[in-house]
Design a protein around this nucleic acid. Structure first.
Lengths: 235, 235
DNA sequence: ACCTGAACACCGTTCAAGT
DNA sequence: ACCTGAACACCGTTCAAGT
């Protein structure tokens, strides 16, 4: 029989790798990546920072772990990485998989930054890429073209693009600052000014530059997929 | 008349922003980005860490400064961002500009990581993008398509791709580790194994995955440029 | 005007020690 | 087996003080 332990107050759930990773993701989701320190992580788990080192080798292992967990979320959202979806053409199948990955990424805005710093590819990520590779391969690609195609997709195969010069909080002063600078340099930036004027004409409250929205993602994705399809046919 | 100062030994070159940025780039080039700390930077300049704060607001300002300097190198390598190069078609002109930027990036392997963390775009970078925009605009693009095209190029417009899961030193154990893991999961990775077998057949000492070499960069670049050209014609 | 010493509030991590 | 206290070697940054 399970008897009540005679510890003082709470039964205290024991620490596990998974609990550590979950807490880490929670912190990053709520307070951003900078808030994810070993000390905060321990605090979130009601434990001393040093206790973490009994379960994980170091902070890198934590980051590896949360990326693996994210890939797990993608697998779950996709209903598994089973090889044959249905009778979709390769392009639709690939886009579907990628947009599923993207839906998970949008829940974890910090994830791209962590992906970039990983040096070893996680097992779940390997299976993810194998599934993508399978889709194009079964779609009639040579391994060589499939390989190039994966590189061409880059981070987009995981559902995100790393935007350059993107302010963290676009509603803040960064955007105004950039706009002010552009106005000051207006004579040196003829085309940017022209573009701004034309686009603001059509859409008064658009701001150029920090717009990695779904429109841009889908535009680039389709551009690459269409290009690959043409190369496949030509080969 | 300029008299000899009565300071003890060396005349001591005074600190300037530019000297700070140059030293910072030198450190990053030689010892990597992690070695770029305010304390090391000061040491490199023969000064105490706190002295730096008289010339720059904080470390972010240093990072902004070295990115500006890198953009300056690109401008120099391109012989200026003058609007009209010659009688090249837009595609050749754009590729040329981008490959020039890439040649500078290859001298500063750490630069992509710093670019990703910038939240404000530097003035020189603005002029760079204006020049790119000018090339496609004069090549017959609408501003709308030009804008989408820039987003589609992403970091490639600056001459680099952020590779996922790229080991820092590919000659080290990371590659072996990844290969070992793949062999262990071979039954779950049918397509990766198939690809490896075929490619290693053609090229015995190739290793899959960490190959963001010029071949992949150019493949993806041309794929996107060709796609944009087709959209331009269709529009 | 330009640089510095001392100090603060943080990091990740080790190691011997507790239960 | 699991957790902790104390400590180490670092960070970026401030502020009053020196010349």
């Amino acid at each position: 029989m399970v008897t009540e332990t005679d510890t003082t107050t709470q039964p205290r759930i024991p620490l596990t790798k998974d609990r550590v990773f979950s807490a880490a993701i929670k912190i990053a989701d709520q307070d951003g990546l900078d808030a994810l320190t070993m000390r905060h992580l321990a605090e979130e788990l009601g434990v001393e920072a040093m206790s973490l080192y009994y379960h994980v080798a170091n902070k890198e292992a934590v980051l590896d772990g949360i990326i693996d967990a994210i890939m797990g979320e993608i697998e779950e959202a996709a209903g598994g990485f089973g090889p044959k979806d249905d009778n979709l053409d390769w392009k639709s199948a690939l886009r579907q998989r990628i947009l599923t990955a993207r839906s998970v990424m949008l829940r974890h805005k910090w994830a791209p930054s962590v992906f970039e710093t990983r040096t070893t590819i996680s097992p779940v990520a390997m299976r993810y890429f194998d599934a993508l590779l399978g889709i194009v391969r079964e779609g009639g690609f040579s391994y060589d073209l499939a390989h190039h195609g994966m590189h061409a997709l880059g981070s987009r195969s995981l559902g995100f693009t790393q935007e350059l010069f993107e302010p963290e909080n676009p509603d803040k002063t960064d955007a105004e600052e950039a706009t002010a600078m552009m106005e000051q340099m207006a004579d040196q930036l003829p085309y940017m000014v022209g573009m701004m004027m034309e686009i603001s004409h059509d859409d008064p409250d658009s701001t150029i530059g920090w717009c990695d929205d779904d429109t841009e993602f889908n535009f680039a994705l389709d551009l690459i997929l269409d290009g690959l399809e043409r190369l496949r046919i030509a080969s």
